[in-house]
Amino acid sequence: MVKLDLYLTTPVHASQATEAPVIISGAPPNVRVTVKLEQTRGKDPLFGPKTKQVRTDGSGGAVVKFTLRLKGPTPAAVLVTSATDEKDTTYPVDADSVEVLA
């Protein structure tokens, strides 16, 4: 089953660069996947949307890393990732939330 997993590493400090990996699994092998990441909740200005492309490996997995700087402080910054591949398959979205410290 194709799956997207977005993870934000805590703690996140406002305006400091933080890495958000998106893990793709269960996709067809060797397809180009366009991954989108955007912030839907938190302190303005919100991050994204930004897209990156990646090619899945032989097992249909891939990792895309976004680097972002979130505004804060906010008790909950919510980021949502979505993806489509070159065969126009839409992958189920995933989200992660994190408290952004001052």
Binding site: I23, G58, S59, G61, A62
Partner: peptide
């Protein structure tokens, strides 16, 4: 390398290629 959840001998395992 992406690691996906799979069951091996009834145990949850992360596996990647």
């Amino acid at each position: 390398i992406a690691l996906a959840l799979s069951m091996v001998d009834g145990k949850a395992t992360l596996a990647g290629y």
